[in-house]
Every structure is written in C-alpha cells, then in structure tokens.
Design a protein around this nucleic acid. Structure first.
Lengths: 157, 157
DNA sequence: AGCAAATCGAGACAGAGTCTCATTATCAAA
DNA sequence: TTTGATAATGAGACTCTGTCTCGATTTGCT
C-alpha cells in the first residue's frame, strides 16, 4: 500500500487553523504531515512516535493537544473504544460512512460499509429514544480463525 | 428497581469454585454477594467500592482476581470497550443475547435485543471472513438529547 | 490439630491520558 | 523590522485503570 497523497487534507487543516486564529507551528506541521502521510489507523502514542521521526522536538503534550483539533476539523475520525483509549482514522474525509471490526488478538482493524446495517442501527436507536451521534460495531474474532482465513482480508460486501 | 434475588446465581458460582478446587473466602463471598445483589452494570472500581461496604477488608487486587472467575463461570458478562476499560453485566445468565447502547455523557447503559441486528452482524462478519466471538454495538448520544427523552428509557423493541 | 496450597493485602509498576507552569515562538500591527 | 500580546511549547507531576510481586494469612482436606 503506497503512502497516499493527502495534500488537500493537509491544506484544509491549515485553513482550519487559520480560521480559528490558531498558529501553524513546526511541531504541528510534523504531526499533520504524519497523519496525512499514512493510510493506517493509529493511536496517540503511535502518532507521537511517528511524528518524532520527522521532528525530534514533538512532545507527547503537543500530540494530545493537536488530535482534538484534527477531529474537530472533520478530517480525522476518532473512534473511542472506552473511556481512555482512542484510535484515529485519517481516511475519514474520503469515506465517512464506514464501520469497523476490531480483531481481538492482533489488533487489526477492518473497515466495511453496509447501508442495511446503518439503517437498522438508526431504526433501533430511534425506537429507543436516541438520536445517534455516532455508532461503532465492535466484532471480536480470535487470531486462530483469522490466520486460517488470510489475515482479516476484507472480501467485499 | 428492587434488588434482584440471585441466590441461584450465587450458588452456581460457589459450585463453580468448588469444581475448580478454588476456595470460598470471606472476601470472595462479599464480592459475589455484591455482584448478584445488583441489577446494574458496574466497573471493577465500582465493585471494589460496593464490596468494601460489606467487608472493609476486600482489596483491589482481590476484586481484579475474582472478576475473571465470574466471567469464566458464565454468570457475568464482560464488555470490553477498549484495551483497559471493562464493564461487567451481572444479568448475563438471565438474558445472554442482548446488545448495549452506551450513553456518551451520563454513562448509562441501555440494553436491547434485536434478532434482525444479530443476523445482519453475523452475515457481515461471515462475509468478511470472521467467525464472531462476540460483538458490541456502541451507540453514542448526547445527554442533551437523552434528557429531553426521559433518561434513556427503553421503549420496547 | 496440622499442613500444603490457595488466597490475601499492600504497594510497586505500567500505560494512556490530562494538567500546570515557566519558557518560547508566532504573526499582525506599528 | 521590531515589537508585543498571546498562542503554543516541553517537561514532568499527576490520575486512573489495571497488573504483578511478595511475604503473611487462611482455607479446607486429612
């Protein structure tokens, strides 16, 4: 998988910063270049590690401060699998309507889209009196099974 | 909501311990009485707090050691919403096939069952090459909306 | 009662994330 | 281009959930 070209996303984020009168710093540049230079989902710690490869001076605090901005801008999707464990998806702007399956043991994430599922989720939530803000279907499977099946390859839906 | 009578569940767990040549200690008794004396979902920390009201000597370590036993016995359901944040459901033995909606802000949990949803989840997972071990649909809604609608009352499905 | 093994509590440790605070960098206006 | 208000920074203290170790205690079988 080649690194995607997300110059557009990067520029949108810079515009977003300007709009909010926030400053474009060298650390933020390193972080943003990292985020939009990968296809993979990542955690805050991973982002810190990767961003430091570009700019040694990036600190943990700055990563944690920049992530909410990226989320707020709509360019990155935050998946909250618990109170204190977030995973970020840099592909969000390209295809905002997908669900995720998380593999239990090897931590791989498989994306898929299903209108039927979306509709059913909305229908159920509505009946329960919720207005859905976001929804995450988490399906756990064991690595044993996944290995047999060729590393969680999305076979199309 | 009156405290449920789960004498049966408690006795099943004691039998489970005996089967595995594990010992019935006063601390475990306090923990088990607590677990099967509530209808509510709880976290490990909450369980620690509640169990200590029955027996001051219950330690954090013992709670964390007993929880996996309760899960293994099949009497309590562990919902893992992240790497390090688990919520436990003591009603599991009574109705094992339900899903959960988690409220974002007030942390309430609403249970529901939907065969249609179960079927669709299984179908999708199968197509993706997974054999489902467990699945959790997490739907987030804001407290604002929930308050308007009467505290997340399950309106029947 | 006696004993081996299971269990215990305390507290050190780990990982994710938040917060403070003194210092530095940005950028718009002069 | 200098200035200056203030946004942003890094370091590190701190919180919270959970794990692990270890010496002391309890259990339950004989």
């Amino acid at each position: 998988m080649p690194a995607p070209d997300r110059t557009a996303a990067k520029e949108k984020f810079m515009a977003f910063l300007e709009e909010k009168n926030l400053r474009i710093t060298t650390q933020r540049r390193a972080i943003v270049d990292t985020v939009f230079g990968t296809d993979q989902h990542f955690t805050a710690e991973q982002l810190l590690e990767w961003a430091r490869e570009r700019d040694e001076s990036v600190s943990r605090a700055t990563v944690y401060r920049t992530l909410p901005l990226l989320t707020e801008s709509g360019l990155v999707h935050e998946m909250d699998f618990g109170k204190d464990y977030k995973i970020y998806d840099p592909n969000y702007a390209d295809h905002p309507n997908h669900n995720h399956i998380i593999c239990d043991d090897c931590d791989k994430i498989v994306e898929f889209e299903s209108n039927k599922l979306d509709e059913l989720e909305n229908e159920i939530s509505h009946k329960l009196g919720f207005s859905v803000k976001s929804q995450q279907l988490r399906i756990n499977a064991s690595c044993e099974e996944m290995k047999k099946l060729g590393e969680c390859k999305n076979k199309g839906l």
